[in-house]
Simulated scan of single mutants.
Amino acid sequence: MPLNADEEFQLEWIKNHQMEDKDELAEIQAEAEAEARPQRATRGKKMRRNPAAWEMPNPEDEIDLHGLTSEEAAEAVERRIDDLLIAGLSVLRVIHGGGNPEYGNVKRIIDRKVRSEWKNRVVFYKVEPDNAGSSIMKIGKPRPQVTKKKK
């Protein structure tokens, strides 16, 4: 099918006038500006607020507490901590879920136990940044209790 004069003119014009991809040019310019901008050091306070900035250890074992009451869950986690210490492992993922009033708030009980009874064994305990229903717990060797001497 032969082209008429208008179509030939349009094809010739397109060949001589290359189109620019404005989105690609904007991305290149943004990258260049980002590289030219000096990087500011992150502040410790800001890192504590941003869950994505936490460096979470990779879990070596996990325990799922779904369906357990808070007392059963605390006993199960304590047994698992003892087992991990015997096995020489140190990082545990505790899957506690979001909370069910019927079973008691399992996460709250585990948090309380970590702060009080297990504080000499648990070195690190945080909720996972991408999953609020589980936490990472790093277990260390039991530290001896320091008692203050009376004068």
Rank of each mutant, 00 (worst) to 15 (best):
E12D: 10
A53M: 07
L84A: 08
Q39F: 14
I63G: 08
G98K: 09
L84P: 07
G67Q: 07
I81Y: 11
K138E: 13
I14H: 09
A34G: 08
R48P: 02
L92S: 09
K119G: 01
S90A: 11
L25N: 03
H96M: 00
K138L: 15
G99F: 00
E8F: 06
A74F: 00
L89E: 15
N16F: 01
G133L: 03
L25C: 00
L68E: 02
D82N: 11
P101V: 07
N120L: 15
K22Y: 10
T42C: 12
P142S: 14
E33K: 06
G104N: 06
I95T: 01
A36G: 05
H66A: 03
L25V: 05
V146L: 04
E7S: 09
W118R: 07
M137G: 06
S116L: 08
N50W: 00
E31C: 07
K46E: 06
V106L: 05
E7F: 04
D64E: 01
E12C: 05
E7N: 04
E62L: 02
M1C: 07
E78Q: 14
I139C: 11
E7L: 13
V106H: 04
K138T: 15
E55W: 00
R121F: 01
P144F: 07
Q145D: 11
V77I: 11
A132H: 01
R108G: 10
E117A: 14
R93V: 07
A34R: 15
E60F: 13
Y103H: 12
